[in-house]
């Protein structure tokens, strides 16, 4: 680019500056509008959760603020319904599922990325084709399998079908394959076993991908609803999604909406906190995977 075209370009951009400002006002208004749409439900649940029962029900038309906030609803949420139990169950389910899955997919991805054996490519193609199978198609038999094994209302029954993810194996395999071969051969010369190499060298190098996969799985587990609903009907094994549904239909005598909102806030906070902590990891992870649709 020579100097004359440079000045020409600058001139043009200067004249368009004023027009640009008007456009900016319009754009920001639009963006702010959608931001309000997104944030408002969160504001409303927070607001309702600190209104007292009588104050809430006294409002024929709901008010946008409260002058006498109370934490009573949060106490109710933990004492009247077993919200603590639901949270603990979800925590156990999430931790166990994620940990087991990480182990399974690390081993499989390593086999695909580094080990050479007959039939590797055929199996890999088969794995990839499994990505197209929708969950709705296999859940029926899984329900029958778990029921026949008398694993309903157990953590084992909840966890087992969610332990593998073909997509994450694929994602991790791609990352593993980027680790230079020379490292592997150097480790071999030193007499390091494959397993030791995998967990001492490969996994640490690929930690960013592992963390992203882990977080995405945690989000998925925390929000799991369909499978837990099919496989548990004992309140002692409810996860938060089923818990909130149970609270809605039977807890708090139906009309105690402030207490319900307190429960909703308690359930929403852990994931929101996780998101704010790992914002960039989660957003890049989601844009790469795009599983939730």
């Amino acid at each position: 680019m020579n100097t004359s075209s440079q000045t020409n370009y600058e001139q043009i951009s200067k004249t368009s500056a004023r027009q640009k400002r008007a456009v900016h006002v319009l754009v920001y208004t639009g963006l702010a509008l959608w931001a309000v749409m997104v944030l408002f439900p969160f504001y409303w649940m927070l607001l309702t959760s600190v209104k007292s029962y009588s104050a809430y029900n006294g409002e024929r038309f709901p008010r946008f603020y409260t002058l006498s906030p109370t934490l009573q609803n949060y106490a109710d949420a933990f004492t009247t319904v077993p919200l603590g139990r639901y949270l603990l169950n979800t925590l156990i389910f999430t931790a166990a599922t994620t940990a087991l899955m990480m182990l399974v997919i690390i081993l499989a991805a390593f086999a695909f990325a580094r080990l050479k054996f007959k039939g590797r490519n055929a199996v890999f193609t088969l794995f990839l084709s499994l990505m197209m199978i929708p969950n709705e198609l296999v859940v029926i038999t899984n329900f029958a399998t778990i029921t026949n094994l008398s694993l309903r209302n157990t953590f084992t029954g909840l966890i087992l079908p969610s332990v593998t993810s073909v997509f994450y194996i694929y994602l991790l395999k791609e990352n593993f394959a980027q680790v230079p071969d020379t490292l592997y051969y150097a480790a071999k010369v030193d007499g390091t076993s494959d397993l030791k190499y995998l967990f001492k060298v490969m996994a640490p190098i690929c930690k960013p991908t592992l963390v992203t996969i882990g977080i995405l799985k945690i989000i998925e587990c925390w929000n799991a609803y369909v499978w837990p609903r099919l496989i548990t009907d004992d309140e002692n094994y409810y996860l938060v999604s089923n818990g909130i549904q149970e609270i809605r239909e039977n807890g708090f005598g139906r009309e105690n909406i402030p207490a319900m909102m307190a429960a909703v806030v308690v359930i929403s906070v852990p994931l929101l906190a996780l998101f704010l902590l790992f914002r960039d990891k989660i957003m890049t992870g989601v844009s790469r995977s795009g599983t939730k649709g």
Binding site: W34, A35, V38, L39, P41, F42, W44, M45, T48, N57, E59, R60, F61, P62, I219, W222, N223, Y225, V240, S241, I244, Q245, R248, E255, I257, M260, M261, A263, V264, I267, S268, L271, L272, L274, F275, R279, I282, M283, V286, K292
Partner: peptide, 27 residues
């Protein structure tokens, strides 16, 4: 802000939407 709905429990936030849209005998 725009990403927030992705990291929420749909059952939980759906309850908020229900309350926003619902009409009951006294509200």
């Amino acid at each position: 802000i725009y990403f927030l709905p992705y990291v929420t429990n749909t059952l939980a936030v759906g309850l908020v939407f229900m309350i926003l849209f619902k009409k009951t005998a006294y509200s």
